[in-house]
Design a protein around this nucleic acid. Sequence first.
DNA 1: TCAAAAGTGTTAGATTTACACCCATGA
DNA 2: TCATGGGTGTAAATCTAACACTTTTGA
Lengths: 225, 225
Amino acid sequence: MTYYKEHNKVWVSVDVIIFGFEQAKLKILIGRRQMDPGRGQWSLYGGFVGAEESIDDAALRTLYSLTGIKNLYMRQVGAFGNVDRDPGERVISIAYYALINVKDYDEQLCREHELEWVDFDKIPALYSDHNKMVSQAIRIMREKIKTEPISFQLLPPLFTLTQLQRLYEAVLGAEVDKRNFRKRVKDMDFIEKTNLIDKTGSKRGAYLYRFNKKVYNDEERNFKL
Amino acid sequence: MTYYKEHNKVWVSVDVIIFGFEQAKLKILIGRRQMDPGRGQWSLYGGFVGAEESIDDAALRTLYSLTGIKNLYMRQVGAFGNVDRDPGERVISIAYYALINVKDYDEQLCREHELEWVDFDKIPALYSDHNKMVSQAIRIMREKIKTEPISFQLLPPLFTLTQLQRLYEAVLGAEVDKRNFRKRVKDMDFIEKTNLIDKTGSKRGAYLYRFNKKVYNDEERNFKL
DNA sequence: TCAAAAGTGTTAGATTTACACCCATGA
DNA sequence: TCATGGGTGTAAATCTAACACTTTTGA
């Protein structure tokens, strides 16, 4: 129990970047920091890593305390460890990003935690190095979305192709050609057409699709959007 | 100075994966662990993060103490933080990979630190989660090598096209077509042909090339190997 | 009846892949 | 003289990108 006692210990925290998608916009969930130093500044939500939990568990716990959802899709962004990154103390922080369906995070919860969904392209100056964390997270996500169907984490179980396309556009920050997009979707067997129609988005109505996880897992992973 | 005192502190270390390239083989530098617990096991080289240094600086210091080289090419792999990853204590470790030219790391230094270059595809079981760190590192490197000229960190200043090709093959773990490879290299203006000839690799001799950093920096980054 | 979103194919251009022979030299 | 690695071009196949009109229906 005393192997490393001559060495220095530090605080380690996790900070989570929570992405959501609503009304064709990519958003992240941020709040006013409730703690000194930096109280009142816009900030990612975070928490300290406990002695008896892995860093992934610390991130999951943080996400759970915020959303009430266990087992969110979540990936590590990286460790941030400049000496003075936190104005109060030396804290090393590990950033994670998570994807949630905005519908699962109602206004109720927003108010409880004093959090807000803000448009990804209107993110204010955040506490400490949190803006850096956000830009690294989006970079990773832009890579991932091309080869992993992470988009389904951000959409309701049933969605139209236009919604899916808007999501891609929001993540990539660029417009996508409708016909080419649909052609590629057609080649992905794990995106299933249902015969349900969504009439909320248009008068004519659009077919609803769903993600078939089983097909995805059985398939070789070789799609490219 | 007492903002977070109710929270738990932990040891944070860095572990470095040092890649080298020699005789058409990708290698990494590992040694026998000199410390309890796990003394004598094959292990990456690492060190603890000090109170007054960033995690990047801790990694650079570790690399410097090993190689005598400052400012090596180095990138973060990620944070590893399972509770029981270290058999002795709870230690969170941040993995980095670095690229060096094997020639810069002579046998002298190897012996001093009791380290060995081992073939990438013959890496033994390593201490703790170090094998996991290595596999993540190579995954990142395979991505990066397609769009960043990291290869030059692993080669001497002057190199033949065959050497460069062998390096790509070693990193990607796959053979590459010679003519297609050379065609693509020709499009990269930052790879400069010299009129020096290397005769060590063949009777006929091969032109030596070099990396032109200035051209690379001035250029738009849009090559793809 | 018309505004608004859904849906649908083709073609040109660019990129990628496959492939085989001659050259120069030292042993 | 021959074994060894160095060096070179073309054609087919695939992938990507650009592009415009018809359909349905609720207001």
